[in-house]
Each structure stands twice: as C-alpha cells, then as structure tokens.
Design a protein around this nucleic acid. Sequence first.
DNA 1: CGGTATTCTAGAATTATGTTCTAGTCAATG
DNA 2: CATTGACTAGAACATAATTCTAGAATACCG
Lengths: 193, 193
Amino acid sequence: MDQLDRDPTRRRILEAALTCFNATGMAGTTIRHIQEASSISVGSIYHHFGDKEGIAFALYQLGIEDMHQALLRRLGGRADLSLTIRGCVDDYLDWYRDHAELGRHLFQFSDTRFVAGRESAIAALGREFLDRFGELAEDEGWGGRLDAEFAVRFVTGGCREFLRSWLVTQDSVELEAARPRLQDLALATFGLH
Amino acid sequence: MDQLDRDPTRRRILEAALTCFNATGMAGTTIRHIQEASSISVGSIYHHFGDKEGIAFALYQLGIEDMHQALLRRLGGRADLSLTIRGCVDDYLDWYRDHAELGRHLFQFSDTRFVAGRESAIAALGREFLDRFGELAEDEGWGGRLDAEFAVRFVTGGCREFLRSWLVTQDSVELEAARPRLQDLALATFGLH
DNA sequence: CGGTATTCTAGAATTATGTTCTAGTCAATG
DNA sequence: CATTGACTAGAACATAATTCTAGAATACCG
C-alpha cells in the first residue's frame, strides 16, 4: 500500500494488479488489464513476476508480511496476557481496516494454494507469531505451549470469519461494533476476561 | 458424493471436475481435462453448466447444502445448549472428514466469489442455521439473538481455521485429537463448559 | 402412431488469454 | 567508448475457454 515495493515499476504493476483483482477477481483479470492499468508492457510484467500467479503471490507475501509485522510488534512489549490478546485483536482488525484491498486479496489467494509450493517463508511468519505468543502465555501460566497455539488459531479463525464478511461491506460502524465483542470472545476462548 | 446430482450426465461431469479440482486446483484444471475424465463432450458440459465457474458453483452449492442439512438435523432434536454445541462441532468435523474432496472445494471456491452474484440461496442456508440456533440459545437464556449469532460465527471460524490446515494432511488421528479441544473452545466461547 | 418441438450431445471453429520470443533501450562498469 | 547485463516493448505463439453448427435422442401433441 504505502510501500508496496521499492522499484517503481514493480510497484505500479502490483498496484494495478491489486486494483484489478479487487474489481473483477483474480480469475477475471487478464494480464492485458494489468498492462493497461499500469502502462507497463506485457514483457516487462513477465520479466518481473514470471507469470500471473507470481504477481498474486508477491501481493500475498507483501500483505502477510506487513500484517505479521504489526502483530509481532504487539508481542514485543511486555503486557498482561489479557491486554495482549485484546491488543492483537485490535491490530488484526486495524490492519484489515487500513488495508482492505490487500486484505481481500489475502482471502482470495489463501485458499487457492493447496497445490502451490511457493510458501515456506510465509509459514515461518505464522510460526514465529505462534512461538512468541506461546512463550508469553507460558510466562503467564496459561496451559501448555500447544494449548496456546491451538487457542490462537481458533481465535484467528473467529476473527477471520468476521472479516471475511466485513470485507464485503467495509462498513466502519460495523467494524467498531464488532471490535469489543470479538475481543471478549477471544478472551473467553482463553478462559480470561 | 453419494448423490451429487440426479442426472447421470451432470453427475459424471461434477465428479470428474471435483477430482480434477482437487488434483490440480481450479485454475489448473481445463475443460478438456474434465472432458477426458468424464467422457462427456465439451458441448455437453457447456450445455449443462454454462461455463467453468458454473461447474465450480454447482459443486459449491451441493456441498454447502449437504453440510447445512447435517447441521440443521442436529438443531431439530431438543437438547441442552452445551450438548448441542458439542454436537454441532461433531457434525461439522464429521462432514469434512467424510467429504474431504468437496470440503477442499468449498475452501477453494468460497473466497473466489467476492465478485460473483450467484448466491442468494446459499446465504439463506446460513441464515436458517443462525436463526434456529438463536432460538435455541434464547430458550436456554443465553444472551440475545444477535449475541448468539456472533458467537456462532466466531466458533465456525475457529473450526474452519483448523479444518483449513487439516485438509492438507487429512490425518484422522489429528482430527480426533482436535475434536474435544475444539468442542471445549467452542463452549468456552459461549461461556459454558 | 407420425410428426414436431425440445433438449441433449458432439466436435469443429472461433475467440480470448497466458506466455514466450526477438529486438531494441538504458544504465552501469571497465 | 565498448561491452555487458538488466529492463522494456510489443508482436508472435500456444493453449484454453467458449461458441457454433449439425445431428441424435427424447418428450410432447394431434
């Protein structure tokens, strides 16, 4: 979004692609659409990204990395477990609120890649978050590491499910109404309050 | 799966398509693949389904309907709220365990359709479940109707998130290990035990 | 029944789309 | 400068989606 990519050419391609993906879906956007929207030639697009999925993947990677950065930052400061959980929910919702287009792309892309083999770096990000959160939970005396991971995934899924439908309307009032309720449910999941 | 469709032609097309989608993803399967796998001519495929997405959508619809039928059956019998929740988690997991191919397709397809406009019947199914569950929760004195809906979606998301990764391995031991934990988390979400 | 309309099947023809290729431009480097 | 390597451009190509035309099967109606 702000800093999609250093190289201005790559950046223009990615921005154009993201707009197209949001407007007509990944299947519905052709390389030519992206070419027209970015004014970068077809050859150049292929030079930088290899193929269409390469563009989608680059966007996915950027999005996931940016989002995880926001969440990891939260785990850096030492706070109460309850506060941390509330804070993570905040960060998660905020990120999607502030990056709705990228967010929609994450949803669009994430379930496409059952087959794909590109993503070890991304799995590592998820792992890092789970590890760090697991440490924190252990320090606070909350069950075992694996229990914490399991609960985190559950909460993530709950928030995801809300966001999936929220991204259709992108109504900020609805988001703010949901925020405290999602936080409460997240805490309840952990048996906290 | 058992009764994908009445018409044997449609059925063979759908079965072939599902196999292909699972093997090589929706983007990776061509109409010709489906043609070869089903031995139904291209013209006939288009006659029945309009286009490739039409096939994917038909499968999606069948899957969703079948799954919701299983869940609605559960809400028919009058049981304790806690038992009902545990039972719904059971049904949800069981359905994916027994229909893993269709399940994978549901995931693949669900996030593709931000743009598509086909799905009012399907939204109605989700509504029906939420309504029926909401009634039950109210009868049991659990918060308001909207609170119940919100919690249901949250729990659904939590289970979905587990299933998303489970569908990659489809390890039955892992599923059974997760089952009671997911049930407990679901109950905790509702503040029950 | 016999004819007629309708649905269904088949595969060739057409069109759209992803990808590759060739040639040329630009920028950095020795 | 000359050379190299990265980058850009758009035409050419290959593949895949979709449409078309014609014929076969089936249902409908007098």
